[in-house]
């Protein structure tokens, strides 16, 4: 049986310059699997999520490759069908809860809008579903909160609401794009726990985009390590933390701060490793250009 989400040889280029932002990325996420996408800023980890959800910036173009969601080839579909499919089987938990809710709409409709508008639910069913979801994400007094506006709620509460909204239509894949980066540390832990809890409860496949290997070790079963838009390692989490295969992965792991000794463990990635991996990327680029 094939995986729920399959990405095969996906390359994305910046329109105009032709620079490659994703370099023949391949990865698969099974139903119920939690996969981490790890890399530095600019490694392209968010870009993969955006490509799957059809929200790449206008300046970025998919040059080759395939994205299959639930067996459908997304890039070959008509845009309207693709939007509908994505809206009904996939969802996004965005990075910044302060900007990801519409400031002029009440909370309730923002959780259930896709149920009503895309999946054709009745208003009363949607309302009941919103209350149920707010309970699931541990929000006190859901009846009061669905009538509130985003500015009346804290960042942590807003992220809970965005999680509720992501799970509203029982999606089979959720892409969490650094969902805790914009929150303060105590709230981060709660949100991380909540996402794990919701994922386990609903059995949703989850792609967890993060730069934090510590988070990956707690939440994920597998991970893909990205450098400059290229997957340098794809491994089970247990295997990875026991013995990372790629030199860049080892360097990244070594650079993760440890709570036991934060000062000594704060090390930048070894420049010779960066040099080696950059050379590797350059070779891949030459082959790619040559092959076209």
């Amino acid at each position: 049986m094939s995986a729920f989400l399959e990405i095969e040889g996906l390359s994305a280029v910046l329109a105009g310059t032709g620079a490659r932002l994703l370099r023949s990325v391949s990865l698969a996420v099974d139903t119920g699997e939690v996969r981490g996408l790890v890399g530095e800023s600019g490694a392209g980890k968010s870009m993969i999520g955006k490509a799957v959800l059809g929200i790449l910036p206008k300046a970025v173009r998919v040059a080759e490759g395939a994205i299959r969601l639930d067996g459908h080839d997304l890039l070959a579909m008509r845009p309207a069908d693709r939007r509908r499919l994505i809206g009904s089987v996939a969802a996004l938990i965005p990075q910044d809860p302060l900007t990801a809710l519409n400031p002029s709409k009440r909370i309730g409709p923002q959780i259930t809008d896709r149920l009503v508008d895309i999946l054709g639910w009745g208003k009363a069913d949607a309302q009941a579903r919103a209350l149920e979801l707010l309970g699931e994400v541990h929000i006190e007094d859901p009846e009061r909160v669905i009538g509130r506006y985003p500015h009346e709620l804290s960042g942590g509460m807003r992220q809970r609401i965005l999680i509720a909204s992501a799970f509203a239509a029982e999606p089979r894949l959720i892409i969490a794009d650094e969902p805790t980066t914009a929150l303060d540390v105590t709230v981060q832990k709660q949100i991380l726990k909540l996402i794990g809890e919701m994922q386990a409860h609903h059995g949703t496949a989850l792609v967890f985009v993060t730069h934090d290997l510590g988070v990956v070790s707690k939440v994920c079963q597998s991970l893909s390590v990205l450098y400059a838009g290229k997957v340098v390692e794809d491994a089970r989490v247990a295997d990875f933390f026991a013995a990372p295969r790629h030199a860049y992965s080892r360097a990244l792991l070594a650079a993760t701060p440890k709570y036991t000794d934060p000062a000594a463990s704060l090390q930048p990635v070894d420049p010779s490793v960066i040099e080696a991996v950059t050379a590797e990327v350059a070779v891949a680029d030459r082959e790619w250009i040559h092959g076209r």
């Binding site: 994505i86 809206g87 009904s88 900007t99 519409n102 896709r114």
Partner: peptide
């Protein structure tokens, strides 16, 4: 370009909506 508009696109809404 704001996040909540991009989020709405992932929900299945078309450009006009």
């Amino acid at each position: 370009h704001l996040d909540y508009v991009v989020l709405a696109r992932t929900k299945g809404y078309g450009e006009n909506r």
